[in-house]
Amino acid sequence: MDVVTLGETMVLFTPESEGYMRYSANFSAKVAGAESNVAIGLARLGHNSGWISRLGDDEFGKKVHTFIRGEGVDVSTVRFKESASTGLYFKEMVTDDEVRVHYYRKESAASLMTPQDLNEDYIASAKYLHITGITPALSESCRKTVMKAVEFAKKHEVTVVFDPNLRRKLWSEEQARKALLEIAFKADIVLPGLDEGVFLFGQNNPEMMAKQLYAHGVSQIVIKLGAQGAYYYSKDGKGTIPGFPVKRVIDPVGAGDGFAVGLLSGLLDKLSLKKAVERAAAVGAMATKVSGDVEGLPERERLESFINGTTQGDVNR
């Protein structure tokens, strides 16, 4: 297995019209979750990925399971729970540049995950364990599950990749900062956004953020700067990779997951960190050009065309 990831995936409902959701009569139903987005994106680029989670034993859970399996992701460790429901969320497209997300995930099946849901051998089989800060925010048992997964990965020398993915509504600032830093300092690669770096360290200088993480044993740090690109830092070098301009952003939600896809794919392909960050920026940009969390994640040929500036309608670099 190339990458194993762990977290909640929900059914996403999006109104078919813009404006306040109260006026919407029709919705599309899709599947989305930060960790499964990454697993799907990696599968599209030809890598082997697996996803660990719980789903409700309901029609929405079956929809999620069927969709992710159909995208080529291994779901053999996913468990269904009869007494809990699959989480839902709604993406309210108020205007082209104003998107609101509403979650209905309290007491969902995934929020009830425990360390007993983990298979140590399954995690040990991977080259990378990808985790986000969303899962530990769902419940105390989910936090313990993430920490146990990290423990298994470190035991078996599996590289831990952590995207803080801060969700302020899920927990208090004190809880979030303490838990996210605890996980970050155990990770090998950390991928904060600039705002997350400010939240964790109280200042907005990417290099200083990276140095603090590096001083705590993180070997590679990549700080996402949005449309401006990303700053990377490791013992082999540091620098800023510019973003890929996009003429029209259709849906910004999922861009960070696309970034993680590109970075992990580049590292799996043995690219330098600099080149892997460039691929990450490209996938993140492509994800914003299509509505939906995974619909814009590219296959390899299209990604290479985009990076080389040969895709119809895209910019040259």
Rank of each mutant, 00 (worst) to 15 (best):
V4N: 06
G7H: 10
G7R: 08
M10V: 07
M10N: 06
T14D: 06
S17V: 15
S17Q: 15
E18Y: 09
Y20H: 14
M21I: 15
N26M: 12
N26D: 12
A29M: 14
A34P: 01
N37R: 09
N37W: 12
I40Q: 02
W51D: 08
I52K: 05
R54N: 14
D57S: 09
D58M: 09
R69E: 13
E71L: 00
E71G: 03
G72N: 02
S76N: 07
V78T: 13
V78P: 11
E82W: 03
S83D: 15
S83T: 13
L88W: 00
Y89M: 13
M93C: 09
D96S: 14
D96A: 14
E98M: 12
V99K: 03
R100M: 06
K106R: 14
S108M: 13
T114L: 13
T114Y: 10
P115W: 10
N119L: 03
E120N: 05
D121T: 07
I123K: 02
I123V: 14
A124L: 13
K127F: 00
Y128W: 12
L129C: 07
I134D: 10
T135M: 14
L138C: 04
S139H: 10
E140A: 15
T145C: 12
E151S: 15
F152G: 02
F152Y: 15
H156W: 11
V161G: 03
F162N: 08
D163K: 06
L166H: 03
R168T: 09
L170S: 04
W171A: 15
E174F: 04
Q175E: 14
A176L: 01
R177Q: 11
K178W: 00
L181G: 06
I183F: 15
F185I: 08
K186P: 10
V190W: 13
P192Q: 00
G193P: 01
L194V: 05
D195V: 02
N205I: 02
P206L: 06
M208H: 07
Q212H: 03
H216A: 08
G217D: 08
G217E: 08
S219A: 11
I221F: 11
V222D: 01
K224M: 00
A227D: 07
G229N: 05
Y231A: 01
Y233L: 10
Y233C: 10
K235V: 03
K235H: 03
K235I: 01
G237R: 00
K238I: 00
G239L: 11
T240N: 09
G243P: 05
I250H: 04
D251V: 06
P252L: 10
V253P: 02
F259P: 01
L263Y: 07
L263N: 01
L267Q: 02
K274W: 00
A276D: 09
E278A: 08
R279G: 00
A285I: 09
G292I: 01
G292D: 02
E301R: 12
R302N: 08
S305F: 08
